[in-house]
């Protein structure tokens, strides 16, 4: 049965690379004695697809995997969560019907929080204002190729907000396109904000991918 599972990666797990996570899942599935389809050919590997990598150091509650397995979704969730290392848990499972859209074809949005170490909330407020003002500017301006390029980034931004968290750190919340062919990463968004909205942000920040919305 084709199964799509959403899992989280927090705590120590955030220091693991995408490939490390793939191994964590493969080994957990073996421990849980969940059978999975293998690829054909000389070196068969389990056929499991994962959503694109989040940056090293990011916490995520919206990672996806898909595999053709030999048990029900509920069983998968229960058995995997018994053998997964701390910081990694299956959150939700979806049993996919025959002919259902693959993860790579689904339209998705990701809800991020970027928590800054050295940026104040006020600075982010001003930067978001600039972002909005620039949108009006771009609409009014005659479209040229540079504007197109900029719009291609802006079109993938669905929501922006900022607030202080309980530690008094500035949080930059953003909902960005996460459709696989059209992903906008928080890093790319920050790059845009530095360039076009004068946000003076350094590399001292932590990304939280709080939710992945599949449409």
């Amino acid at each position: 049965m084709m199964l799509r599972a959403m899992f989280k990666k927090e705590g120590k797990m955030r220091f693991l690379s995408h490939l490390d996570m793939v191994r964590v899942m493969e080994r957990a599935m073996r421990r849980a004695k969940i059978g999975v389809k293998y690829s054909e050919g000389f070196h068969p590997i389990p056929k499991i697809t994962f959503s694109p990598p989040v940056p090293l150091g990011a916490v995520s509650y919206g990672e996806l995997m898909e595999a053709d397995i030999n048990c029900s979704g509920a069983e998968f969730l229960e058995r995997m969560n018994r053998v997964l290392p701390e910081g990694c848990r299956i959150l939700k499972v979806y049993e996919l019907k025959e002919g259902a859209k693959k993860m790579s074809k689904c339209e998705m949005k990701a809800d991020y929080e970027i928590v800054f170490e050295n940026v104040a909330c006020e600075e982010v407020v001003i930067a978001i204002e600039r972002f909005n003002a620039r949108g009006i500017e771009l609409d009014e301006a005659k479209e040229d190729s540079a504007g197109d390029k900029e719009n291609s980034i802006r079109d993938r931004v669905f929501y922006l907000d900022t607030y202080e968290n309980k530690d008094g750190k500035a949080v930059f919340r953003c909902v960005l396109d996460a459709t696989q062919s059209n992903i906008l990463s928080p890093k790319a968004l920050l790059e845009y904000f530095r360039e076009k909205c004068d946000l003076m942000a350094d590399e001292q920040y932590t990304v939280y991918k709080n939710e992945l919305i599949i449409e």
């Binding site: 120590k12 220091f15 693991l16 690379s17």
Partner: peptide
């Protein structure tokens, strides 16, 4: 951890 090549070497917590 975020200033080294392979933080996975120093985190522990493995299964």
């Amino acid at each position: 951890l975020l200033n080294v090549q392979k933080p996975g070497r120093y985190i522990g917590g493995e299964y």
